[in-house]
Write a protein that binds this DNA or RNA. Structure first.
Length: 227
DNA sequence: GGGTATGATAGTGGAAGTGT
DNA sequence: ACACTTCCACTATCATACCC
């Protein structure tokens, strides 16, 4: 029998999904898994960011197809905003690559929307106890924030610090060092140092290579400004 | 048109400050 | 001690403007 609640007695759990019906369904799952938890809801990435910033969340359930998500960028943004909060990605997409990407980018678990309620409850218990939950056997050891794809770039990405990931995200958006420095309120030389560290960890020779690979890995198609 | 000076930008190396 | 963040000084590259 499953333990009823590994979560703190008054834990806060955010359900971020744009479909009210599915939010209701997820809330039933959460209620069953953690009867004492306070459940918050968001229907857009912006709402989720605001709630995550103001509430000390114990768990976040995130629909990756929600408005504003832009592929996995929303997951990355939330991970950077609340690095200590485990994030479970909820998606109708059950492709192995999607699951691997979500876990690579720091998700604490992946729950397909087609999954049985009991399995979802079990998955949430595993995540809240500090484990990584995945719906299928990906046949390789996996830890939160890491990955098992034999890919230097993705391994490098997992090794980036929070600030380095923020800089990389802005590089992907085509921003110059000067603009990044302004927006992060740091010196341009600091941005350059971060870029150098990013290139070293990602094992690429230029920001252009880093941006191209990052765009591919994040699963987003962007108009690439001149770099 | 070709050479040179200048400015903007990218990238590296090293060092200091801070938190764990 | 170590990792991370930040900054400075420096070099390299590229585009543009100017002069001959």
């Amino acid at each position: 029998m499953l333990e009823q609640s590994m979560a703190p007695p008054h834990s806060k759990i955010l359900i971020a999904d744009d479909h009210p019906l599915f939010r209701d369904a997820l809330q039933q799952v959460v209620d069953q898994a953690f009867p004492d938890a306070a459940v918050l809801e968001a229907s857009t990435l912006d709402e989720a960011m605001i709630i995550a910033a103001h509430d000390d969340l114990d768990l976040l359930l995130l629909d990756i197809n929600m408005p504003g998500m832009n592929g996995f960028n929303g997951l990355i943004a939330l991970r950077n905003a609340v690095p200590a909060t485990p994030i479970v990605v909820v998606s109708a997409d059950e492709e192995r690559e999607t699951i691997q990407q979500a876990l690579t980018l720091g998700a604490a678990g992946f729950i397909p929307k087609s999954m049985a309620k009991a399995s979802m409850v079990q998955g949430l218990h595993e995540v809240i106890s500090g484990k990584v939950y995945m719906p299928v056997d990906l046949s390789a050891p996996l830890t939160r924030g890491q990955m098992m794809i034999d890919d230097d770039f993705q391994q490098g990405y997992a090794a980036l610090t929070g600030q380095q990931r923020r800089v990389l995200e802005m590089l992907v958006l085509g921003k110059s060092n000067k603009v990044i420095a302004f927006e992060l309120d740091i010196a341009e030389s600091t941005v350059k140092a971060h870029v150098s560290a990013i290139l070293r960890k990602l094992r690429v020779n230029s920001r252009t290579q880093a941006v191209l690979n990052a765009s591919k890995m994040l699963g987003t198609v962007r108009a690439m400004p001149s770099l």
